[in-house]
Design a protein around this nucleic acid. Structure first.
Lengths: 192, 192
DNA sequence: CTTGAATGAGACATCAATGTCTCATGTGGG
DNA sequence: CCCACATGAGACATTGATGTCTCATTCAAG
Protein backbone atom coordinates (compact mmCIF):
# COMPACT_ATOMS: atom_id res chain seq x y z
CA UNK A 1 0.00 0.00 0.00
CA UNK A 2 2.97 2.28 -0.47
CA UNK A 3 1.48 3.67 -3.67
CA UNK A 4 -1.91 4.95 -2.71
CA UNK A 5 -3.13 7.40 -5.28
CA UNK A 6 -0.17 9.33 -6.66
CA UNK A 7 3.36 8.17 -6.24
CA UNK A 8 6.00 10.36 -4.70
CA UNK A 9 7.54 11.31 -8.06
CA UNK A 10 4.45 12.93 -9.43
CA UNK A 11 4.64 15.89 -7.08
CA UNK A 12 8.16 16.66 -8.23
CA UNK A 13 7.26 16.11 -11.83
CA UNK A 14 4.25 18.34 -11.53
CA UNK A 15 6.36 21.22 -10.31
CA UNK A 16 8.91 20.65 -13.04
CA UNK A 17 6.19 20.57 -15.68
CA UNK A 18 4.72 23.75 -14.28
CA UNK A 19 8.00 25.59 -14.46
CA UNK A 20 8.76 24.37 -17.97
CA UNK A 21 5.33 25.51 -19.05
CA UNK A 22 5.90 28.89 -17.44
CA UNK A 23 9.19 29.32 -19.25
CA UNK A 24 7.70 28.31 -22.59
CA UNK A 25 4.48 30.28 -22.32
CA UNK A 26 6.42 33.37 -21.30
CA UNK A 27 8.08 33.27 -24.69
CA UNK A 28 5.13 31.94 -26.73
CA UNK A 29 1.83 32.46 -24.98
CA UNK A 30 -0.06 30.52 -27.68
CA UNK A 31 1.98 27.35 -27.34
CA UNK A 32 0.11 24.09 -27.86
CA UNK A 33 -0.44 21.50 -25.14
CA UNK A 34 1.81 19.30 -27.24
CA UNK A 35 4.53 21.92 -27.25
CA UNK A 36 4.17 22.38 -23.51
CA UNK A 37 4.53 18.64 -23.05
CA UNK A 38 7.61 18.46 -25.25
CA UNK A 39 9.16 21.40 -23.43
CA UNK A 40 8.74 19.50 -20.17
CA UNK A 41 10.15 16.34 -21.73
CA UNK A 42 6.96 14.34 -21.28
CA UNK A 43 4.20 13.14 -23.56
CA UNK A 44 0.89 14.84 -24.09
CA UNK A 45 -0.87 11.97 -22.33
CA UNK A 46 1.18 12.44 -19.19
CA UNK A 47 0.62 16.17 -19.31
CA UNK A 48 -3.10 15.50 -19.31
CA UNK A 49 -2.69 13.23 -16.32
CA UNK A 50 -1.25 16.15 -14.39
CA UNK A 51 -3.60 18.87 -15.63
CA UNK A 52 -7.08 18.14 -16.87
CA UNK A 53 -6.72 20.60 -19.74
CA UNK A 54 -5.22 23.82 -20.90
CA UNK A 55 -7.49 25.82 -18.64
CA UNK A 56 -6.42 23.82 -15.61
CA UNK A 57 -2.79 24.32 -16.57
CA UNK A 58 -3.18 28.08 -16.82
CA UNK A 59 -5.02 28.10 -13.50
CA UNK A 60 -2.21 26.14 -11.91
CA UNK A 61 0.29 28.59 -13.34
CA UNK A 62 -1.77 31.42 -11.92
CA UNK A 63 -1.73 29.77 -8.49
CA UNK A 64 2.02 29.21 -8.78
CA UNK A 65 2.63 32.81 -9.76
CA UNK A 66 0.54 34.09 -6.87
CA UNK A 67 2.26 31.76 -4.42
CA UNK A 68 5.72 32.80 -5.59
CA UNK A 69 4.75 36.44 -5.36
CA UNK A 70 3.41 36.07 -1.87
CA UNK A 71 6.56 34.23 -0.85
CA UNK A 72 8.60 37.04 -2.37
CA UNK A 73 6.59 39.65 -0.48
CA UNK A 74 7.13 37.73 2.74
CA UNK A 75 10.85 37.46 2.12
CA UNK A 76 11.08 41.16 1.29
CA UNK A 77 9.66 42.18 4.71
CA UNK A 78 7.79 45.12 3.23
CA UNK A 79 7.05 46.77 6.54
CA UNK A 80 10.61 46.89 7.79
CA UNK A 81 13.05 49.73 7.30
CA UNK A 82 12.60 52.47 4.74
CA UNK A 83 10.02 52.06 2.02
CA UNK A 84 12.76 52.61 -0.51
CA UNK A 85 14.76 49.67 0.77
CA UNK A 86 11.61 47.58 0.95
CA UNK A 87 10.90 48.24 -2.72
CA UNK A 88 14.45 47.24 -3.56
CA UNK A 89 14.08 43.99 -1.65
CA UNK A 90 10.70 43.38 -3.26
CA UNK A 91 12.07 43.68 -6.79
CA UNK A 92 15.03 41.51 -5.88
CA UNK A 93 12.86 38.76 -4.42
CA UNK A 94 10.32 38.79 -7.19
CA UNK A 95 12.84 38.70 -10.02
CA UNK A 96 12.85 34.88 -10.47
CA UNK A 97 9.09 34.98 -10.99
CA UNK A 98 9.09 37.98 -13.31
CA UNK A 99 8.75 35.93 -16.47
CA UNK A 100 5.78 34.01 -15.15
CA UNK A 101 4.26 37.23 -13.89
CA UNK A 102 4.62 38.82 -17.32
CA UNK A 103 2.79 35.90 -18.89
CA UNK A 104 -0.04 35.99 -16.38
CA UNK A 105 -0.23 39.77 -16.64
CA UNK A 106 -1.18 39.48 -20.32
CA UNK A 107 -3.63 36.62 -19.86
CA UNK A 108 -6.54 39.01 -19.61
CA UNK A 109 -8.69 35.93 -19.91
CA UNK A 110 -7.93 35.38 -16.23
CA UNK A 111 -9.56 38.64 -15.21
CA UNK A 112 -12.65 38.92 -17.34
CA UNK A 113 -14.81 36.22 -15.78
CA UNK A 114 -16.60 36.27 -12.48
CA UNK A 115 -14.19 33.75 -11.06
CA UNK A 116 -10.96 35.62 -10.58
CA UNK A 117 -8.42 34.47 -8.07
CA UNK A 118 -8.58 36.63 -4.97
CA UNK A 119 -4.83 36.22 -4.62
CA UNK A 120 -4.27 39.11 -6.99
CA UNK A 121 -6.28 41.40 -4.80
CA UNK A 122 -4.21 40.35 -1.81
CA UNK A 123 -0.97 41.05 -3.68
CA UNK A 124 -2.26 44.38 -4.92
CA UNK A 125 -3.22 45.33 -1.40
CA UNK A 126 0.16 44.50 0.07
CA UNK A 127 2.14 46.34 -2.59
CA UNK A 128 -0.21 49.28 -2.54
CA UNK A 129 0.19 49.45 1.24
CA UNK A 130 3.95 49.63 0.80
CA UNK A 131 3.70 52.64 -1.49
CA UNK A 132 1.19 54.23 0.86
CA UNK A 133 3.58 53.74 3.72
CA UNK A 134 6.31 55.41 1.73
CA UNK A 135 4.06 58.38 1.09
CA UNK A 136 3.08 58.71 4.72
CA UNK A 137 6.69 58.56 5.82
CA UNK A 138 7.55 61.34 3.39
CA UNK A 139 9.81 59.20 1.22
CA UNK A 140 7.55 59.03 -1.81
CA UNK A 141 5.76 61.83 -3.59
CA UNK A 142 2.05 62.03 -2.99
CA UNK A 143 0.91 63.14 -6.45
CA UNK A 144 1.20 59.60 -7.82
CA UNK A 145 -1.36 57.27 -6.28
CA UNK A 146 -0.26 54.00 -4.69
CA UNK A 147 -2.57 52.18 -7.09
CA UNK A 148 -0.81 53.66 -10.08
CA UNK A 149 2.61 52.94 -8.63
CA UNK A 150 1.56 49.33 -8.19
CA UNK A 151 0.31 49.07 -11.75
CA UNK A 152 3.46 50.74 -13.01
CA UNK A 153 5.57 48.24 -11.11
CA UNK A 154 3.73 45.39 -12.82
CA UNK A 155 4.31 47.01 -16.19
CA UNK A 156 8.00 47.46 -15.48
CA UNK A 157 8.25 43.85 -14.41
CA UNK A 158 6.75 42.75 -17.70
CA UNK A 159 8.83 45.00 -19.92
CA UNK A 160 11.92 44.18 -17.92
CA UNK A 161 11.36 40.44 -18.22
CA UNK A 162 10.73 40.64 -21.95
CA UNK A 163 13.66 42.96 -22.57
CA UNK A 164 15.94 40.47 -20.84
CA UNK A 165 14.33 37.58 -22.71
CA UNK A 166 14.94 39.23 -26.07
CA UNK A 167 18.47 40.17 -25.11
CA UNK A 168 17.85 43.90 -25.30
CA UNK A 169 19.10 44.45 -21.78
CA UNK A 170 21.41 42.38 -19.60
CA UNK A 171 19.80 40.06 -17.11
CA UNK A 172 22.07 41.26 -14.33
CA UNK A 173 20.64 44.77 -14.68
CA UNK A 174 17.05 43.68 -14.15
CA UNK A 175 16.75 44.71 -10.53
CA UNK A 176 18.80 47.88 -10.88
CA UNK A 177 16.88 49.05 -13.92
CA UNK A 178 13.47 48.61 -12.39
CA UNK A 179 14.26 49.97 -8.94
CA UNK A 180 16.15 52.96 -10.22
CA UNK A 181 13.56 53.90 -12.79
CA UNK A 182 10.60 53.35 -10.52
CA UNK A 183 12.07 55.24 -7.60
CA UNK A 184 14.42 57.75 -9.16
CA UNK A 185 13.08 58.30 -12.65
CA UNK A 186 15.05 59.22 -15.73
CA UNK A 187 15.90 62.77 -14.76
CA UNK A 188 19.27 63.59 -13.30
CA UNK A 189 19.15 64.53 -9.66
CA UNK A 190 20.21 68.06 -8.90
CA UNK A 191 21.25 67.11 -5.39
CA UNK A 192 24.46 65.22 -5.15
CA UNK B 1 -17.97 53.38 -64.55
CA UNK B 2 -18.00 55.34 -61.35
CA UNK B 3 -17.67 52.17 -59.32
CA UNK B 4 -14.55 50.54 -60.57
CA UNK B 5 -13.32 48.05 -58.05
CA UNK B 6 -14.07 49.27 -54.54
CA UNK B 7 -16.56 51.99 -53.81
CA UNK B 8 -15.65 55.06 -51.85
CA UNK B 9 -17.33 53.88 -48.67
CA UNK B 10 -15.11 50.87 -48.20
CA UNK B 11 -12.08 52.93 -47.27
CA UNK B 12 -13.99 54.65 -44.49
CA UNK B 13 -15.51 51.38 -43.37
CA UNK B 14 -12.15 49.69 -43.34
CA UNK B 15 -10.75 52.28 -40.99
CA UNK B 16 -13.80 52.05 -38.77
CA UNK B 17 -13.55 48.28 -38.64
CA UNK B 18 -9.88 48.52 -37.81
CA UNK B 19 -10.50 50.84 -34.90
CA UNK B 20 -13.36 48.78 -33.55
CA UNK B 21 -11.18 45.70 -33.73
CA UNK B 22 -8.39 47.54 -31.94
CA UNK B 23 -10.74 48.57 -29.14
CA UNK B 24 -12.12 45.07 -28.76
CA UNK B 25 -8.84 43.18 -29.00
CA UNK B 26 -7.30 45.53 -26.46
CA UNK B 27 -9.82 44.25 -23.95
CA UNK B 28 -10.04 40.65 -25.16
CA UNK B 29 -7.07 39.64 -27.25
CA UNK B 30 -8.60 36.24 -28.05
CA UNK B 31 -11.79 37.64 -29.56
CA UNK B 32 -13.27 35.68 -32.44
CA UNK B 33 -13.56 37.00 -35.96
CA UNK B 34 -17.29 36.87 -35.38
CA UNK B 35 -16.96 39.00 -32.26
CA UNK B 36 -14.73 41.45 -34.10
CA UNK B 37 -17.35 41.69 -36.84
CA UNK B 38 -20.17 42.27 -34.38
CA UNK B 39 -18.15 44.89 -32.54
CA UNK B 40 -17.76 46.75 -35.82
CA UNK B 41 -21.45 46.38 -36.61
CA UNK B 42 -20.88 44.31 -39.72
CA UNK B 43 -21.24 40.65 -40.62
CA UNK B 44 -18.47 38.13 -40.65
CA UNK B 45 -18.72 37.91 -44.42
CA UNK B 46 -18.08 41.62 -44.83
CA UNK B 47 -15.21 41.46 -42.39
CA UNK B 48 -13.62 38.81 -44.57
CA UNK B 49 -14.10 41.06 -47.59
CA UNK B 50 -11.96 43.67 -45.86
CA UNK B 51 -9.32 41.38 -44.35
CA UNK B 52 -8.49 37.99 -45.81
CA UNK B 53 -8.27 36.42 -42.35
CA UNK B 54 -7.35 36.91 -38.77
CA UNK B 55 -3.70 37.10 -39.61
CA UNK B 56 -4.30 39.82 -42.16
CA UNK B 57 -6.38 41.71 -39.62
CA UNK B 58 -3.64 41.60 -37.00
CA UNK B 59 -1.10 42.67 -39.59
CA UNK B 60 -3.31 45.60 -40.54
CA UNK B 61 -3.62 46.53 -36.88
CA UNK B 62 0.13 46.36 -36.60
CA UNK B 63 0.52 48.67 -39.57
CA UNK B 64 -2.07 51.03 -38.10
CA UNK B 65 -0.33 51.08 -34.75
CA UNK B 66 3.02 51.78 -36.32
CA UNK B 67 1.56 54.51 -38.49
CA UNK B 68 -0.15 56.18 -35.54
CA UNK B 69 3.03 56.00 -33.52
CA UNK B 70 5.10 57.52 -36.26
CA UNK B 71 2.54 60.28 -36.69
CA UNK B 72 2.68 60.86 -32.94
CA UNK B 73 6.47 61.04 -33.01
CA UNK B 74 6.29 63.53 -35.84
CA UNK B 75 3.77 65.66 -34.00
CA UNK B 76 5.84 65.55 -30.83
CA UNK B 77 8.88 67.11 -32.56
CA UNK B 78 11.30 65.01 -30.53
CA UNK B 79 14.37 67.01 -31.46
CA UNK B 80 13.02 70.38 -30.41
CA UNK B 81 13.42 71.98 -26.99
CA UNK B 82 14.43 70.07 -23.91
CA UNK B 83 14.34 66.31 -23.92
CA UNK B 84 12.04 66.43 -20.93
CA UNK B 85 9.45 68.48 -22.79
CA UNK B 86 9.85 66.25 -25.82
CA UNK B 87 9.03 63.19 -23.72
CA UNK B 88 5.97 64.96 -22.36
CA UNK B 89 4.80 65.78 -25.88
CA UNK B 90 5.51 62.25 -26.98
CA UNK B 91 3.36 60.71 -24.27
CA UNK B 92 0.62 63.22 -24.95
CA UNK B 93 0.58 62.53 -28.67
CA UNK B 94 0.74 58.77 -28.34
CA UNK B 95 -2.00 58.50 -25.74
CA UNK B 96 -4.87 57.87 -28.21
CA UNK B 97 -2.96 54.89 -29.60
CA UNK B 98 -1.92 53.49 -26.22
CA UNK B 99 -4.62 50.81 -26.14
CA UNK B 100 -3.70 49.53 -29.58
CA UNK B 101 -0.05 49.63 -28.64
CA UNK B 102 -0.70 47.59 -25.52
CA UNK B 103 -2.44 44.94 -27.60
CA UNK B 104 0.34 44.77 -30.16
CA UNK B 105 2.96 44.77 -27.41
CA UNK B 106 1.61 41.48 -26.11
CA UNK B 107 1.19 39.84 -29.51
CA UNK B 108 4.59 38.21 -29.28
CA UNK B 109 3.50 36.24 -32.31
CA UNK B 110 4.39 39.34 -34.29
CA UNK B 111 8.02 39.22 -33.27
CA UNK B 112 8.96 35.58 -33.31
CA UNK B 113 8.99 34.93 -37.05
CA UNK B 114 11.53 36.07 -39.58
CA UNK B 115 9.09 38.53 -41.03
CA UNK B 116 8.80 41.29 -38.49
CA UNK B 117 7.73 44.73 -39.49
CA UNK B 118 10.72 47.02 -39.67
CA UNK B 119 8.51 49.84 -38.45
CA UNK B 120 9.13 48.79 -34.86
CA UNK B 121 12.86 49.16 -35.31
CA UNK B 122 12.33 52.65 -36.71
CA UNK B 123 10.18 53.63 -33.75
CA UNK B 124 12.64 52.15 -31.29
CA UNK B 125 15.43 54.05 -32.93
CA UNK B 126 13.66 57.41 -32.77
CA UNK B 127 12.63 57.04 -29.13
CA UNK B 128 16.00 55.70 -28.13
CA UNK B 129 17.61 58.69 -29.85
CA UNK B 130 15.46 61.00 -27.77
CA UNK B 131 16.66 59.46 -24.52
CA UNK B 132 20.22 59.54 -25.78
CA UNK B 133 19.86 63.22 -26.57
CA UNK B 134 18.59 63.81 -23.06
CA UNK B 135 21.61 62.08 -21.64
CA UNK B 136 24.03 64.01 -23.80
CA UNK B 137 22.43 67.30 -22.84
CA UNK B 138 22.78 66.39 -19.17
CA UNK B 139 19.05 66.23 -18.50
CA UNK B 140 18.82 62.46 -18.03
CA UNK B 141 20.94 60.20 -15.90
CA UNK B 142 23.40 58.05 -17.76
CA UNK B 143 23.23 54.90 -15.64
CA UNK B 144 19.99 53.81 -17.32
CA UNK B 145 20.49 52.92 -20.96
CA UNK B 146 18.34 54.54 -23.64
CA UNK B 147 17.27 51.08 -24.72
CA UNK B 148 15.93 50.28 -21.28
CA UNK B 149 14.21 53.63 -21.00
CA UNK B 150 12.47 52.90 -24.28
CA UNK B 151 11.36 49.46 -23.14
CA UNK B 152 10.20 50.90 -19.83
CA UNK B 153 8.17 53.51 -21.67
CA UNK B 154 6.43 50.76 -23.62
CA UNK B 155 5.68 48.91 -20.42
CA UNK B 156 4.28 52.01 -18.79
CA UNK B 157 2.11 52.65 -21.83
CA UNK B 158 0.68 49.16 -21.54
CA UNK B 159 0.08 49.22 -17.80
CA UNK B 160 -1.31 52.73 -18.05
CA UNK B 161 -3.72 51.80 -20.81
CA UNK B 162 -4.93 48.70 -18.94
CA UNK B 163 -5.24 50.51 -15.65
CA UNK B 164 -7.45 53.11 -17.30
CA UNK B 165 -9.41 50.40 -19.09
CA UNK B 166 -10.15 48.58 -15.85
CA UNK B 167 -11.02 51.79 -14.08
CA UNK B 168 -8.15 51.56 -11.60
CA UNK B 169 -6.84 54.98 -12.53
CA UNK B 170 -8.58 57.97 -14.09
CA UNK B 171 -8.16 58.41 -17.82
CA UNK B 172 -7.33 62.09 -17.41
CA UNK B 173 -4.25 61.16 -15.38
CA UNK B 174 -2.77 58.94 -18.08
CA UNK B 175 -0.23 61.41 -19.42
CA UNK B 176 0.67 62.84 -16.02
CA UNK B 177 1.16 59.45 -14.44
CA UNK B 178 3.45 58.13 -17.14
CA UNK B 179 5.53 61.24 -17.64
CA UNK B 180 5.97 61.93 -13.96
CA UNK B 181 6.90 58.36 -13.10
CA UNK B 182 9.20 57.88 -16.06
CA UNK B 183 11.03 61.16 -15.59
CA UNK B 184 10.75 61.90 -11.89
CA UNK B 185 10.28 58.51 -10.25
CA UNK B 186 8.43 57.77 -7.07
CA UNK B 187 10.88 59.39 -4.65
CA UNK B 188 10.23 62.87 -3.33
CA UNK B 189 12.60 65.47 -4.67
CA UNK B 190 14.87 67.06 -2.13
CA UNK B 191 15.49 70.11 -4.27
CA UNK B 192 13.06 73.02 -4.67
C1' DC C 1 -37.77 51.81 -62.78
C1' DT C 2 -33.52 49.35 -63.62
C1' DT C 3 -29.11 47.91 -62.57
C1' DG C 4 -24.92 46.96 -60.29
C1' DA C 5 -22.53 46.77 -55.99
C1' DA C 6 -22.24 45.87 -51.20
C1' DT C 7 -24.07 43.60 -47.63
C1' DG C 8 -26.17 40.07 -44.19
C1' DA C 9 -27.43 35.59 -43.29
C1' DG C 10 -26.44 31.18 -43.47
C1' DA C 11 -24.72 26.62 -45.23
C1' DC C 12 -20.65 24.03 -45.75
C1' DA C 13 -15.99 22.05 -45.64
C1' DT C 14 -11.59 22.41 -43.41
C1' DC C 15 -8.32 22.49 -39.96
C1' DA C 16 -5.99 22.64 -35.67
C1' DA C 17 -6.25 21.89 -30.95
C1' DT C 18 -8.23 19.40 -27.61
C1' DG C 19 -10.00 15.58 -24.70
C1' DT C 20 -10.36 10.64 -24.26
C1' DC C 21 -9.27 6.18 -25.08
C1' DT C 22 -6.40 1.78 -25.61
C1' DC C 23 -2.24 -0.75 -25.55
C1' DA C 24 2.62 -1.86 -25.24
C1' DT C 25 6.62 -0.81 -22.63
C1' DG C 26 9.55 -0.21 -18.77
C1' DT C 27 10.61 0.14 -14.17
C1' DG C 28 10.90 -0.28 -9.33
C1' DG C 29 9.41 -2.61 -5.18
C1' DG C 30 8.02 -6.72 -2.94
C1' DC D 1 10.24 -13.43 -10.69
C1' DC D 2 5.91 -10.87 -10.49
C1' DC D 3 3.03 -7.07 -10.24
C1' DA D 4 1.31 -2.54 -9.91
C1' DC D 5 1.90 1.75 -11.81
C1' DA D 6 3.51 5.46 -14.61
C1' DT D 7 4.57 6.45 -19.05
C1' DG D 8 4.82 7.06 -24.35
C1' DA D 9 2.77 6.42 -28.53
C1' DG D 10 -0.91 6.66 -31.16
C1' DA D 11 -5.84 6.25 -32.68
C1' DC D 12 -10.17 8.51 -32.43
C1' DA D 13 -14.04 11.70 -31.89
C1' DT D 14 -15.21 16.39 -30.65
C1' DT D 15 -15.13 21.04 -30.66
C1' DG D 16 -14.51 25.72 -32.04
C1' DA D 17 -12.66 28.88 -35.20
C1' DT D 18 -11.84 29.68 -39.72
C1' DG D 19 -12.23 30.23 -44.80
C1' DT D 20 -15.33 29.86 -48.76
C1' DC D 21 -19.47 29.70 -50.98
C1' DT D 22 -24.36 30.95 -52.40
C1' DC D 23 -28.39 33.73 -52.36
C1' DA D 24 -31.74 37.18 -51.10
C1' DT D 25 -31.99 42.00 -49.86
C1' DT D 26 -30.99 46.70 -49.73
C1' DC D 27 -29.53 50.87 -51.56
C1' DA D 28 -27.95 54.38 -54.48
C1' DA D 29 -26.83 55.96 -59.05
C1' DG D 30 -28.31 56.34 -63.64
Amino acid sequence: MSHVGYGCLMALDRDHVLRSAAALLTRKSTATMDEVARAAGISRATLHRHFAGRDALVRALEALGIAECEAALDAARLDEGSARDAVTRLVHEIEPAAGLLAFLYTENQLFEGEEQNEGWARLDERITALFRRGQESGEFRIDLTPVWLTEALYGLFASGAWAVLEGRVAGKDFQFNIVELLLGGALRREES
